[in-house]
Design a protein around this nucleic acid. Structure first.
Ligand SMILES: NC(=O)c1ccc[n+]([C@@H]2O[C@H](COP(=O)([O-])OP(=O)(O)OC[C@H]3O[C@@H](n4cnc5c(N)ncnc54)[C@H](O)[C@@H]3O)[C@@H](O)[C@H]2O)c1
Ligand SMILES: NC(=O)c1ccc[n+]([C@@H]2O[C@H](COP(=O)([O-])OP(=O)(O)OC[C@H]3O[C@@H](n4cnc5c(N)ncnc54)[C@H](O)[C@@H]3O)[C@@H](O)[C@H]2O)c1
Lengths: 206, 206
DNA sequence: CTTCATATGTGAAAATATTCACATAATTTT
DNA sequence: AAAATTATGTGAATATTTTCACATATGAAG
């Protein structure tokens, strides 16, 4: 069955709530209380979960830890995902400095650039590899996701290289539409789209 | 009439294509050629635009420059939007170093933090202000959009301050759901959601 | 001038996504 | 032990979004 993309995105949000609730010692919650935390409808939560199975108990709700683990399984997070960052400039370095990856269950196992000034140097404890070594390192390290923080002009070219190396998921920060083969998932984090949409919703300037 | 949020987001993408096409000297395009650039349907492009008016010519298509300007008007970009960055840590600094804001038609007019180590110091040519001065500076500078790059624990508190200062749009990088008054638009750029969704779409690990 | 090709704008239809509402079951109260 | 309360899971209903399909207009070719 085809799962709506929005459902998958909400599962990530549910996971985060469950993670914090479990840390706070909560052991049970209802679809209503989860929905309230995220300003959603309870039916939405139940429907989303129902695509994947029956995780709750009538009259009781869901076991926090159990549901968290079920969602981790659905999202493929149990074993930890391996990530590469390509393009070690401003943004690439900010991401590298980000302590949150491990908490998220992701591990940055390799970093790449094409600049002779950067290849071989250490950034946040990791040696920057030559982008041309990418296909070999992907195979060796079993990398799951490539994060692209390269200039816009290079993004398509790098996306092609990445796709041809067998990577099935790309997180792209460059403001460009990437053409990739079917079967490769691309998420775009696009500052321009966000700012311009906000500009619209903030209303016309008086 | 209520405009779908997805339509607004696509308008930003159309704008970017039109911007590049105009730079390349193109003066006319069809809904089909615009759609092809973004892997969309031509009817989608036309429907999106039709919410706001009639910008094309039958048998001819759209004038690139004219359509670009119309979309700028729709999105409220003509005059330039003023932006503040709150939280001058790793991510805030990466954003500050980002040259793209001006090209996008956005101007970072003030930056804020609450750390005595940062207040008063210069970052990328801008003096970091005390967050407690935010309401006054918003009014003085007529800031439109607040970008939040504060730690997750502070995000809700800062969002409240920002909303109470009359800001109508927030771009939030903290992995937290922000409760804000009606009429305030929030966009979340959420690395965790993107990575976890990609993890799902990349398939279960074998 | 007429015909042909092109491409918009938009109601209608189809596809998707959300919400309702209720049968069902577990738990708590009396 | 019965009644009342709570809350799931899910078909059906509703709402939203996308796509179709065509009347209509424009420009080019003959
Ligand atoms: N800096 C930001 O805050 C920010 C915000 C939003 C979006 N972005 C986008 O993110 C991307 C990167 O931005 P940045 O400011 O970090 O740029 P940057 O110029 O600082 O860094 C880009 C890095 O990519 C490397 N690179 C170039 N071509 C490459 C290739 N073919 N293979 C491997 N590496 C290559 C460069 O050597 C450089 O180190 C851009 O597309 C930008 O528009 C940046
Ligand atoms: N660094 C990244 O690459 C990255 C990636 C994705 C998401 N994020 C998220 O972005 C946020 C910021 O990340 P970071 O790595 O830049 O953190 P950071 O700790 O480097 O910076 C946070 C800054 O916010 C300031 N701050 C704290 N409370 C404040 C308040 N009440 N008012 C004003 N300023 C305040 C701190 O003094 C600090 O300078 C976090 O929520 C993080 O999860 C960061």
């Amino acid at each position: 069955m085809k799962i709506p993309e929005k459902t998958v995105r909400r599962l990530s949000l549910y996971y985060r709530c469950l993670y914090f609730l479990s840390q706070q010692g909560a052991y049970n919650l209802s679809s209503k209380s989860l929905a309230d935390l995220l300003e959603l409808e309870p039916a939405q939560v139940r429907k989303d979960l129902s695509y994947f199975g029956q995780f709750g108990k009538k009259g009781k709700g869901y076991d926090v830890l159990e549901l968290k683990n079920e969602i981790a399984k659905i999202l493929g997070l149990e074993k930890g995902r391996k990530v590469a960052i390509i393009g070690i400039g401003n943004l690439g370095n900010a991401l590298l400095s980000f302590k949150g990856f491990e908490v998220l269950g992701f591990q940055v196992v390799a970093i790449f650039d094409n600049s002779p000034n950067k290849i071989g140097k250490k950034y946040h404890g990791k040696i920057c590899q030559d982008i041309s070594a990418f296909p070999a390192i992907v195979r060796r390290e079993k990398i799951d996701i490539a994060i692209l923080t390269v200039p816009t002009e290079s993004a398509q070219e790098v996306a092609r290289l990445v796709s041809n190396s067998g990577i099935k998921a790309i997180l792209n920060f460059a403001p460009a539409h990437l053409n990739v083969p079917k079967g490769v998932a691309v998420s775009n984090i696009d500052l321009a789209v966000e700012l311009k949409s906000l500009s619209y919703f903030a209303g016309q300037k008086q």
